[in-house]
């Protein structure tokens, strides 16, 4: 097996642009998912009960359907239905956000319910309004517990952006695929891709492990 890494060196600009897009897409998705998922999670806990069934349906549906399917449907099928066509990057952003926000919502719900009910009662007893109690007392305690899981979300998002390659988003996976196909040296290209993804993800998973260790001692508050 003789390896030839020159195609990689020749296409390095192309690959680097892909890597850049991976990072941008990941960060944008995480930000949007945290916003949407946070809102959904809070609405599930504190919102009107008439809304709950819909939110639960959304969350459970995203647990049931693969990311690939959501990506493909958003990019190919949605434009037909709505007349709005989304460029690959935006389709990926929307699809990934919808998918991952569901997980964020569950994390938020779990975090909030892990705070002892007595805390809310105590806050109300000293005269806080419900909103003040949630913001001042419940959420700070809940957020600490949620931090490690949020770290996992970053890790999962970065991995899921690679799936966006199937709808031709020119992120790192797609660019690698292209270079591999054109150069007939897939082993070298994909091996380097593996190393690159590993180098990006390893610090994130380490951080998550550390966060989990730090909050491990917190049981129910």
């Amino acid at each position: 097996m003789d390896l030839d890494f020159t195609p990689l060196i020749e296409s390095r600009q192309y690959l680097l642009e892909g890597l850049e897009l991976t990072i941008v897409l990941s960060l944008a998705t995480v930000a949007a998912s945290l916003a949407l998922g946070g809102a959904v999670g809070l609405a599930r806990c504190y919102g009107p009960s008439s809304l709950r069934w819909f939110l639960v349906l959304y969350i459970d549906s995203m647990r049931a359907v693969p990311v690939l399917v959501v990506l493909v449907w958003t990019y190919f099928a949605f434009p037909i239905l709505s007349g709005i066509s989304l460029p690959p990057f935006w389709a990926a952003l929307v699809a990934l956000t919808l998918h991952i926000a569901a997980y964020v919502a569950e994390i938020v719900r779990a975090g909030i319910t892990s705070v002892r009910p007595g805390q809310l009662r105590a806050a109300l007893a000293i005269g806080m309004s419900r909103r003040e109690a949630v913001v001042e007392i419940i959420l700070p305690q809940a957020i600490i517990r949620m931090l490690p899981a949020f770290g996992s979300i970053l890790s999962i998002t970065i991995k899921d952006t690679a799936i966006a390659a199937v709808i031709a988003v020119p992120e790192y996976m797609k660019q690698s695929e292209t270079v591999a196909g054109q150069s007939f040296h897939p082993i070298e290209v994909f091996s380097v891709a593996a190393i690159v993804y590993f180098l990006i993800l390893f610090p994130v998973t380490r951080l998550v492990d550390m966060l989990y260790a730090r909050v491990a001692h917190l049981g129910r508050s």
Binding site: K159, A162, A180, P186, A194, T205
Partner: peptide, 22 residues
């Protein structure tokens, strides 16, 4: 374990497809 925790599965699939026969 660390290796597989830190790689996108789609990449592992492609990589296996090209590396395994060789």
């Amino acid at each position: 374990v660390e290796f597989f925790r830190n790689l996108p599965l789609i990449l592992v699939v492609y990589w296996a497809y090209y590396v395994m026969p060789v």
